[in-house]
Amino acid sequence: MRRRINYLMLIASLLLVLLFVFPLWRITLTAPQYPDGISMFIWINKITGDNEYTLQNINILNHYVGMQYIVPESIPELTYFPYIILFMTAAGVAVAFTNNKKLIGTWLVTMLILGILGIYDFYLWEYDYGHNLSDKAPIKVPGMAYQPPLLGTKMLLNFKADSYPHWGGAVLGLSIILSYVALIKSRFSHEKS
Rank of each mutant, 00 (worst) to 15 (best):
M1V: 12
R2P: 00
R4V: 13
R4S: 11
R4Y: 05
I5Y: 07
Y7L: 15
M9V: 14
L10V: 06
I11K: 11
L18A: 12
L19D: 02
V21N: 01
V21H: 03
L24E: 13
R26F: 00
R26T: 05
I27Q: 09
I27L: 12
T30C: 07
P32F: 11
P32C: 08
P32A: 08
Q33S: 15
Y34G: 00
D36G: 09
G37V: 04
G37F: 07
G37R: 08
S39C: 07
M40A: 13
F41C: 00
I42L: 12
W43T: 02
N45W: 08
T48W: 00
G49R: 01
G49K: 01
D50T: 06
D50H: 08
N51I: 07
L55N: 02
L55V: 04
L55D: 00
L55F: 00
Q56R: 11
N57A: 15
I58N: 01
I60K: 14
H63R: 14
Y64T: 04
Q68M: 12
S74K: 15
P76F: 10
E77L: 10
Y80G: 05
F81M: 13
F81E: 04
P82H: 04
Y83S: 11
I84N: 06
I84L: 15
F87T: 15
F87D: 04
T89I: 12
A90Q: 00
A91D: 05
G92R: 05
V93G: 06
A94F: 15
A96L: 10
K101R: 15
I104M: 10
G105T: 09
L108Q: 08
V109C: 03
V109K: 02
M111Q: 12
L114A: 15
L117R: 07
G118W: 07
G118Y: 08
Y120L: 14
F122H: 13
L124H: 11
W125D: 02
W125P: 03
Y127I: 01
Y129V: 08
N132I: 07
N132P: 00
L133K: 08
L133S: 07
S134G: 06
A137M: 09
I139T: 08
I139D: 03
V141W: 09
P142Q: 05
M144N: 01
A145N: 13
Y146P: 03
P148T: 00
P149W: 02
P149R: 03
G152D: 05
G152T: 10
T153K: 15
K154P: 00
N158W: 12
F159G: 03
F159R: 05
F159V: 04
A161E: 02
A161V: 11
S163F: 06
Y164L: 09
G168N: 07
G169M: 09
A170N: 08
G173L: 10
I176D: 02
L178F: 10
L178R: 04
S179T: 11
A182E: 07
A182L: 06
A182D: 04
L183I: 05
I184A: 05
K185C: 09
K185A: 10
S186Y: 09
R187M: 07
F188M: 15
S189F: 15
E191G: 01
